[in-house]
Amino acid sequence: MLLLRAVALLEAIAFLLLLFVAVPLKHLTGTPEPVLVLGPVHGIAFLAYAWLIGREAVDRSWPAGRALWLIIAGLIPLAPFFIVRSLPAK
């Protein structure tokens, strides 16, 4: 569960940096490099997050709806910060 919490936080931070730093930089100053770096980082972090949700959902017998909601919520900026708080400590 600790790993899931850490990956959820990483995913959330990478997504915020991508949306509010890298994308504006690309369009306002014509600097595409931050998007080229943060895009894949966010993508891989999201995959790891979704993979860990799948593993925990089966391991802890979570309802499929809860697992699906947690994965979709990972795509909403800031939502993973609340998800981390809602996850059991162990």
């Binding site: 995959l47 979704a50 799948g54 959902a57 089966v58 391991d59």
Partner: peptide, 21 residues
């Protein structure tokens, strides 16, 4: 990848003596 995540969780369950989905 999703299937692998679920299988990893199932292996943990099976090792504890609980059934897999």
């Amino acid at each position: 990848s999703a299937l692998h995540g679920m299988l990893a969780g199932s292996l943990k369950r099976l090792q504890r003596g609980q059934p897999a989905p």
